[in-house]
Design a protein around this nucleic acid. Sequence first.
DNA 1: CCTTAGTCCTGCATGC
DNA 2: TGCATGCAGGACTAAG
Length: 273
Amino acid sequence: MPELPEVETVVRELKPLLEGGVFGRVILHDVRSLKGEPPGCLECLEGEVVERLFRRGKYICFGLGGGGHFTVHLGMTGKLLHRLEEKDGKHLRVEFLFEGGRGLYFVDTRIFGRLKVWAVGEPLLPGLGVEPLHWRTVFNALKGKRSIRAVKTVIMDQHVLAGVGNIYADESLFRSRIHPETPLDSVAVDALKTLSLEIPRVLKRSIRNKGTTVSDYRTPDASSGRNQFELKVYGRSGEGCLSCGTEILRIVVNGRGTHFCPSCQPRGKGRKK
DNA sequence: CCTTAGTCCTGCATGC
DNA sequence: TGCATGCAGGACTAAG
């Protein structure tokens, strides 16, 4: 599922192809990708210059010449491709033709993705949390909070940290040796510091690897990422911990499948005394 | 402030 | 083989 590193990879690859380009015809094949936005809202993209392509959290953001914005959230299975293969046709939801003949295709099997056009002057993505790529920023976002919520729930909360999803939450908690259900305000400062260091490390490693492909995620040229080979706990329940051999467990936290090593991440470890 | 459950969706795995 | 069932989950919403 596309989280920060996957979205960053998509943006980096599309940037040289799209920046400076001009939207031509936009063909909406399935209104459900708009998630309730007006069915004609993509028409206003036609003729707009893509001044800047950037990422914010898990959102792909188009800064438009007219001053507005266009955002794409990939949801679970969304892909932005510049080459369309035959098998993608079935789940092609939106087609963007660019002046000069280039095409951009939004393919999304489960239709959890969402596209949105933002008016000039409208605050973009209000309430979204901080970018978690520097340890100080992460630490500052977490340290002041007096919350009894599970630490995993907090780091996945997009209003706190923008871009951390299920895979990287589990991976960074494992590397920090913190049990995912530890209440945030019970995590000792040292452990919180470790976590604040591990989150950016895990994300940056995955960016270098062009993201984690476990099922649907693909880069814009339809190739897979390589970060799945770096995963220590995600998707490994029932297998041995790569650090100590103990069986990796799967529990549900905040409604998400959560993978952890009960020996390396025992309840109470790194807790405040 | 917090939690849980439901919603959206389809592909895949399981069971008979 | 085929049909029914259940599960996965990011973001959002409603209810408690």
